[in-house]
Design a protein around this nucleic acid. Structure first.
Length: 599
RNA sequence: GCCUGGGUAGUUCAGUGGUAGAACGCUUCCAUGGUAAGGAAGAAGUCGAGGGUUCAAUUCCCUCUCCAGGCUCCA
């Protein structure tokens, strides 16, 4: 679990104890209302808590009201909450018919850890509960001032697909009604910022049942964003010494066997069958790496060519779990800002630092500053997930850590999530709403060079293996743009806006002038449209605001007369009337410099 | 893939065992406006798909499909 850090943070939350107690109260209420429901466990989480139950019937959101009422009853009863130590023997007696608790007790016993219980109320009274529990609590149930159940979900016991699916209830609790209301408001706001909601106004992509899940169609507006972003990526890579290639969107099984993907990912690869041709199986490519390795191999390489940076905007297909699909943040086909850098052992660290710097450049330009690296190492409990020998892994890890230290970027280490061929670094960015995204990834790979026989002739005339670094600073167009939509809440930087300027003629008679303004902007390649609907100016302004168009140029009698336009920004600032030329130049400047400001 | 809930006009949603409604949007007309919604009329739906129960199904039941929130996963 990547949860250690999060848990630390949660434990420092002043509401931790209160939520923990609220969770016990919820368990009591559920066991009271649903015969046979067994409490399993439930910790406080960021901004709330959840509780898991084993219950053979259904608990749905319709039951929330009665559960909440029962909880309120327990809160009103003002029961004492006491935590004390307990013997394994006592515990096993208490939980003799609860296999989950039993399992936890046995774990404690095995590790010789102290066991504590939490008792709420007095034995024999209307409400009484005793539970295996290690944690802080508030003193009395009445300290839980405000709570709300939020959703039901299924969750596997101990997080494993092999285990039984339990019923999980998500909820939250606060020390005041105001705190709760504020939080519920934030949830509402987050929902509005969901890229799928923003998409309704921005018209970036469209999904259809007939096309298939996870297969978005890019609409004209989306395509503008995408092409601006790609152009920037390509220009930047050119400056940073990358060369571009293009690889076929499908290939024979053989190459994916060579890359080592088949044993781990065959189930998630789209197979292509060719009628009448049985000998070869083809897959739609799920990644670009093997092809770039082949580019490297297309002729003998020497030290003079290194580092060789091979880039491609490559579209890949992965049959993602149905439940993992989410708008364009997690589709089944996506286009990566991909490249592989081939270098010598000696160059590896400098190359890595350069890649980190490239990330920094991109993120700075977009004004994203809340990011860090997560270094994903092998999960010691799942060693069968990884290729290569121990020595290779140790070496890769050593280089990676050295490189990270030298780059000076902040990073956290997680013992999980490595790629099958090597340690992985994920760039995690926190969006403006606080959601964290794995937006880009970077990997130092010693495995592929060995598999593919990727070598170069060094100065001393000897053939040596290269080191490969996988990188995709702009992630995939899909996820990156979805992220940007949410981060900016739809208010994209001017250069990425599908429509940069909306011209709003006040009346019919101003339309001719509006067209002239339009032509002046178009001459500078600014994306502009005239709203010539039979509507009031106010209504046209509203339309533009909703579409998050950065500049609204209002033209009426006064402007026509002076050859000016009245400038309103989507920030609702009214800059007043300005000469047309000045406005054109300003917008052009903001566009070309990729400014994050509007004026 | 698993758990829970859902699918009604382009969108957000109401509603019903006797084949449907609102708001916004769209089209047309009127209004010619000064910084977030002027007025009127009109078009628009195989009530996700298939099967079953019924005299009758959008409504009840089953299967499939798609969507949402979780769990698991993300080369």
């Amino acid at each position: 679990m990547k949860k250690q850090k999060v848990i630390e943070k949660i434990k420092n939350d002043p509401l931790f104890a209160l939520r923990h107690s609220a969770e016990h109260i919820m368990h009591m209420a559920v066991e009271d209302l649903f015969q046979g429901a067994k409490k399993v466990m439930g910790p406080p989480i960021e901004s709330g808590f959840y509780g898991d139950f084993d219950y053979n019937g259904k608990i749905t959101e319709e039951d929330f009201l009665s559960i909440e009422q029962k909880m309120q009853d327990i809160v009103d009863a003002n029961l004492a909450i006491v935590v004390r130590e307990a013997s394994y023997k006592e515990l096993k007696e208490i939980f003799q018919d609860n296999p989950y608790k039993w399992e936890m007790i046995e774990d404690l016993e095995k590790n010789k850890e102290k066991a504590t219980v939490c008792e709420i109320g007095e034995k024999g009274s209307k409400y009484y509960d005793i539970d295996l529990c290690a944690g802080n609590h508030v003193a009395r149930t009445s300290d839980v001032k405000a709570f709300k159940l939020l959703s039901v979900a299924g969750a596997y016991w101990r997080g494993s697909e092999q285990n039984k699916m339990l019923t999980r209830i998500y909820a939250t609790a606060f020390d005041s009604k105001e705190g709760l209301d504020e939080y519920l408001n934030i949830l509402e706001e987050q929902k509005k910022r969901d890229h799928r909601n923003i998409n309704k106004n921005l018209e970036v992509f469209a999904l259809f049942e007939e096309v298939g899940p996870g297969l978005p169609i890019w609409l004209p507006n989306g395509m503008i964003i995408r092409e601006e972003l790609e152009r920037w990526g390509k220009e930047t890579e050119e400056k940073w010494g990358y060369v571009r290639v293009s690889s076929p969107f499908m290939a024979k099984r053989k190459i994916f066997e060579l890359s080592g993907h088949v044993p781990y990912f065959e189930d998630e690869m789209y197979k292509v069958t060719v009628p009448g041709e049985q000998e070869d199986e083809y897959f739609i490519k799920p990644m670009n790496c093997p092809f770039h390795h082949m580019v490297f191999k297309s002729k003998p390489r020497t030290y003079k060519e290194l580092p060789l940076k091979i880039a491609e905007y490559g579209t890949v297909a992965r049959y993602e779990n149905r439940g993992a699909i989410n708008g364009i943040l997690r589709p089944r086909i996506f286009c990566q800002n991909d490249a592989h850098v081939y270098c010598s052992k000696e160059q590896a660290i400098d190359v890595f630092v350069e890649i980190v710097n490239l990330h920094k450049y991109y993120y700075d330009m977009l004004g994203l500053n809340n990011y860090h690296i997560e270094l994903n190492l092998r999960d010691p409990t799942k060693m069968n997930k990884y290729h290569g020998n121990e020595e290779m892994w140790q070496k890769a890890e050593k280089i990676t850590r050295e490189a990270l230290d030298k780059s000076g970027i902040k990073y956290t280490v997680v013992n999980e999530g490595a790629a099958h061929y090597g340690p992985k670094m994920d760039f995690k960015i926190k969006s403006a709403i606080g959601t964290e995204y794995g937006i880009s990834t970077n990997q130092i790979d010693l495995y592929s060079p060995e598999r593919f026989g990727l070598t170069y002739i060094d100065k001393d005339g000897k053939e040596k293996p290269v080191i490969v670094q996988h990188r995709a600073p702009l992630g995939s167009n899909e996820r990156f743009i979805g992220f940007l939509m949410e981060h900016f809440s739809g208010n994209l930087p001017v250069w990425l806006c599908p429509i940069q300027v909306e011209i709003i003629p006040i009346g019919d008679k101003h339309e001719k002038y509006a067209q002239r303004v339009k032509e002046a902007l178009k001459a500078k390649h600014i994306r502009v449209e005239v709203n010539d609907k039979a509507e009031t100016m106010q209504s046209k302004i509203r339309d533009a605001q909703v579409k998050k168009i950065p500049y609204m140029l209002i033209v009426g009698d006064k402007e026509v007369e002076k050859n000016e336009v009245s400038v309103r920004l989507r920030t609702e600032e009214n800059l007043g009337s300005k000469p047309l030329e000045e406005v054109v130049l300003k917008v052009e400047e903001m566009y070309l410099t990729k400014s994050l400001n509007l004026w």
